[in-house]
Design a protein around this nucleic acid. Structure first.
Lengths: 237, 237
DNA sequence: TTTAAAATTTAAGCTAACTTAAATTATATT
DNA sequence: AATATAATTTAAGTTAGCTTAAATTTTAAA
């Protein structure tokens, strides 16, 4: 009857949560396994264990569903991850592709006490540098409810603001930086070429032709999110 | 042939290093076990494993000795620990009794890359808030070589400065704070009562009668360490 | 609707890091 | 120098978190 939560468990719950909240993804054991780099057998095994601890509901051959307790834990880990990313970027000046790697470790070894000091120090941010929302200490998102959609599904002619950049490697962020694709950048859809899966956009007077590989990782919203804008301005607290 | 270093290994090496460098302590398996809260059997087991990995020299029934590789690892962990303590105290304002607990976790999940950014951010400190020296990235201490000794062994009539406070709980630091026993405080030995293991000292015009339980945890030096003083002044970088 | 392919589960086994209990070796004392 | 005590080591066993391989179930296609 071990009550302590392990890194493996935290990562498992986090992955189930993330997959469950990503469009076009599912929470079947195999999907979770692939995401975590473990075998299907290990994922099934873990699912049964976590089910016994009431952290998720598991029925053979079905998708995994977090219980409210499991979801709360997942959100706790996500909170720590995103607060650390914000911190590492703002305070230590780590670049976008570096912060995830470090936060991935730190998130598991930060007490709730320290988490709140971190959040306080940062001025209780509600989004991280990628534009991802940060839940509060009780697992609630306070980001307003602006409609967001992947750039790959944006409408021709419309104007949007970038709300999230979901890539991870240096090249991705270098490219985005280079082309002014930043959180809160204004972006207009010039043309869509669905057959070629390309989208032509305008950012800061410049035209870009982007493939769906990229446009599916950029989340945009029609109205500029004033909350996020507010947060971006407070760089050195 | 697992090349990754585990938390258990890091803590084991750190403990052997610390015991080996504390006067009146030894590095026998039982001592290490007690320190880590594991059984003797587990300590012996670990000693053999680490010996196989060339991190320490182990001969049955003898004290444990770190190899240079093992010592380097131990110093790496200690560096991370003390940098985090410095950070948490200076930047997040955590109190003395809180920083150890958090640093104890963070030290194991901080990459060398992040460690150097942390050190840079803090201005490459050479002592932590307890006055403990921080080794540099290659495991070298750059704290000058002021002679230090426990307050319990200080000489009657002499003046010293406090160089380290080695306690851990809130009560300890509250008492020290209350009585101006801080790193770099000036302290004069008025009287020693070896039979009762008490020492009478004067700090900021106030006289204190202290038991060896306390005086053995306070390290002092005859000459005020200008290096440490310099560091203490840079509070909010 | 049958069947082939894909996914999932079960079974058996491994390693790290522990445990308890028994056996061995050191050490300290008389 | 013999012996009691303390420390250490060995042996056997446990749990978490994996693995591979085989068996089973689902799903998708013919």
């Amino acid at each position: 009857m071990d009550n302590l939560i392990s890194v493996a468990t935290e990562n498992f719950l986090k992955t189930v949560y993330t997959l469950g909240n990503s469009i076009g993804k599912n929470t079947r054991p195999g999907t979770v396994a692939r995401e975590l780099g473990i075998t299907n057998a290990a994922a099934t095994d873990m699912a049964r264990k976590l089910s016994a601890k009431n952290l998720l509901d598991y029925t053979k051959y079905r998708e995994l569903k977090l219980t409210s307790e499991g979801e709360k834990m997942a959100l706790g880990v996500i909170r720590k991850h995103r607060l650390w990313e914000t911190f590492l970027h703002r305070v230590f000046g780590l670049s976008m592709h570096e912060i995830h790697r470090e936060a991935e470790q730190l998130e598991h070894f930060t007490s709730d006490f320290l988490t709140e000091r971190l959040s306080l120090f940062l001025g209780h941010p509600t989004t991280d540098p990628h534009g991802d929302p940060i839940p509060d200490a009780s697992g609630v998102f306070n980001n307003g409810n602006t409609e967001v959609l992947p750039l790959s599904q944006a409408t021709e002619g419309e104007k949007y603001t970038v709300s999230r950049l979901q890539g991870s490697d240096k090249e991705y962020f270098d490219f985005c930086q280079q082309n002014d694709l930043k959180v809160n950048s204004v972006i207009r859809i010039i043309n869509r070429y669905p057959n070629n899966r390309m989208t032509e956009v305008e950012v800061k007077k410049r035209k870009l032709l982007l493939h769906e590989d990229l446009t599916s990782t950029i989340t945009v919203s029609k109205m500029p999110s004033s909350l996020e804008f507010h947060n971006r301005k407070r760089q050195n607290p």
